[in-house]
Design a protein around this nucleic acid. Sequence first.
DNA 1: CTTGCTGGTTTGCTCAACAATATGACCCGC
DNA 2: GCGGGTCATATTGTTGAGCAAACCAGCAAG
Lengths: 236, 236
Amino acid sequence: MASPITGLGATIHRQSVTEQAVAALREAILSGRIAPGTPLREAALAAELGLSRNTVREAARLLSGEGLVRHQMNRGIVVATITAADVSDIYAAREATEKAGAQALAQHRDPVAYQQLADLADQIEAAFSRGDVAAVLDGDRRFHATLVAAAGSPRLCRFHARLQQEQRLVLALAERSSRELGRTADDHRELLDALRGSPALATAQLTAHLQAGAAELQRLRTLLAQRAGTQAPDDG
Amino acid sequence: MASPITGLGATIHRQSVTEQAVAALREAILSGRIAPGTPLREAALAAELGLSRNTVREAARLLSGEGLVRHQMNRGIVVATITAADVSDIYAAREATEKAGAQALAQHRDPVAYQQLADLADQIEAAFSRGDVAAVLDGDRRFHATLVAAAGSPRLCRFHARLQQEQRLVLALAERSSRELGRTADDHRELLDALRGSPALATAQLTAHLQAGAAELQRLRTLLAQRAGTQAPDDG
DNA sequence: CTTGCTGGTTTGCTCAACAATATGACCCGC
DNA sequence: GCGGGTCATATTGTTGAGCAAACCAGCAAG
């Protein structure tokens, strides 16, 4: 049963039109080109993307499975909005999953995982020092994703990726006009050191790191909501 | 701005045809009436459910978001199958989320949560002693769901519910011919006692409980796969 | 200021159709 | 018999039109 050819990493992937529509919409939402709360008119989208309304509806169902979009009976599709409670929730869930990663890492002490984390910490610091906000955010996401990956559970990784994606929903608007971001100092190095130490220290530092992030995001969300002017800061 | 009427808890919920189709399919899959690996023909389903093929496709996309069904380009929809690796993964992910619940519980020591858990433990024991396998399984699910709920994170709860649902996919076939199940002794009482104790004890006992469950499910999965006769026990 | 109507807009869903792809049968040279 | 082709068929991917029901805003009437 040995496969005759190995190392064919280049997996062929044909994309259906629906998948392309999903990708396009996801990109548009996460980049902030479509603001949270915006209603998505099926006919308009179909025209814009150059495809049928039915296909748009399928794409929307997929996106709703990702939590980027919400359906309201007979009222259509809206880009998901993140409330203050959601931010807390996202960070609570992230803490749970990342703690699992930290604990696994504290057990098996996989050197390549540590190396990946160290590299990412370097990248983040470099991006931070040259003021590249987008690169800092991307590095941060990958750092934490790598941490979760240390747990070795695909489902946990996917869940965490989804949480990060929802989180990006808040940042979306800010990432373009990146004035508000990047004020916090980069403490991933500190976190990495703690991860190299005792499990208790690692989880404690992780909790602190995430709580700081949550507070920062909460602050930013309030700011953006106020600027948008339409909704109360604590309830969407 | 005080609302004139309060306490209208009875939320009205209209179900679209698509949602009904999702519910019907989910029920059919989880109850084992449609076995894992079964290809779902769109036309046949549309005829069976008495609705349009497009609506079936939308329902399938939603189910694929739940992980109950998988899409293969130009090849259609198949009921998801759970491999041995999946079982390990599901339990690893469950452990991460339930540990979060246990830890939260160890902190706030919410008495009503403890009461709910105790009640569920009672129910499980009662069902166990009268040999009601389905009730034992249901009680088990609710026990662990309640534990996760103690963490107070809706997203964590939903994730856990999804894991339990995927797990049911394996049990589905067995729940009907419930010969294989219910052999393991009921140790939820023990787990509950540990949850009342120190955090370290609680997480240790939880890990043991889940690992036993994983082993049991792994055994059952192999058994069912062999009985089905078509697939190797370790790879679907 | 609330109630009820009214017309336009949008969704939920259906139906019919067509191209592209997968699947299996059949046939063939060896 | 077996690997390799060709062809027919089934099924999916996608489209486009179309209709009933639900929603929304505005306006008239009490």
